[in-house]
Design a protein around this nucleic acid. Structure first.
Lengths: 147, 147
DNA sequence: CGTGAAACTGATGCAGC
DNA sequence: GCTGCATCAGTTTCACG
């Protein structure tokens, strides 16, 4: 993990479809050198995949919110399966603290949101917050473009 | 947005580096047809970019947590700039409710976490939860592979 | 790690349906 | 709007220094 690896990660985080040739130009290395480094980053698990970023808003799901779900422990694993089966849920983290689950939801309307919350209330207490904005978009930890 | 567009989105969400030729094979269309559809999805904003998925754990930041920060309104915009300057913060959402900010942090150690929390406490009350697991990994809203 | 050449693959435009 | 083909550019991947 030197300066070149960091540059590669930053570049691929910003545009995951860069070719090795193009990547090589941006980080000032040769294409084979870059290909070699990327392969190592992939095999070591630092890069775990590549993904198209999809905008739920443009897909017809303009409302996003975060729901903290306080589950009763016994039902825990069953709940997770139910959550996986709900297409409105676009992410879910298991966390410490009373809540237990931090769920992210994207819906088309408030009435759908109401239905989702009603279903989640079967499994425990919910605390819902609407997502207004993303002041810090997803980024790489401790890697700024300072070279 | 028909069945083919959905297949394309699912495929590119799973592997953002697929070539048009390879994508065409997977969705049973010709390469030019796929290229055309992808370009439209990009221009309409449904696909807003491509990104390498980077594993903070393998980068030396094995600890992740979510911090709800209840800020005093007056300081709000100043706070966001401070957050952007903190490399340990890998994402941040502005949300409704008392908290106001939902911050995601990746750190190398508990002592670093302690420092981060200490800094955030300058701006308001904090509620920290450790992220244990990701039962539902990030996915596309309402698009299941049902074709 | 860089260079240069060779081979390949994918992208693109057009005719035709 | 899609297909199939042909062409062309670009990238990947060697071997070698």
């Amino acid at each position: 993990m030197d300066k070149f690896d960091r540059k590669i990660l930053v570049a691929l985080h910003e545009n995951g479809r860069l070719s090795f040739a193009e990547l090589a130009r941006r980080v000032n290395l040769s294409a084979p050198a870059v290909a070699d480094r990327v392969e190592k980053l992939e095999r070591s698990g630092v890069i775990s995949g590549y993904r198209a970023i999809i905008n739920p808003e443009k897909l017809g799901y303009p409302i996003q919110c975060v729901i903290e779900l306080t589950v009763k422990n016994l039902e825990y694993y069953g709940v997770v399966d139910k959550l996986k089966a709900m297409p409105e849920i676009i992410a879910c983290d298991s966390i410490t603290g009373s809540s237990g689950l931090m769920i992210r939801v994207a819906v088309d309307s408030m009435s759908t949101l109401q239905e989702v919350i009603a279903r989640l209330m079967q499994y425990g207490d919910t605390k819902t917050s609407m997502v207004i904005d993303q002041p810090v978009p997803p980024r790489i930890p401790a890697l700024r473009e300072d070279d």
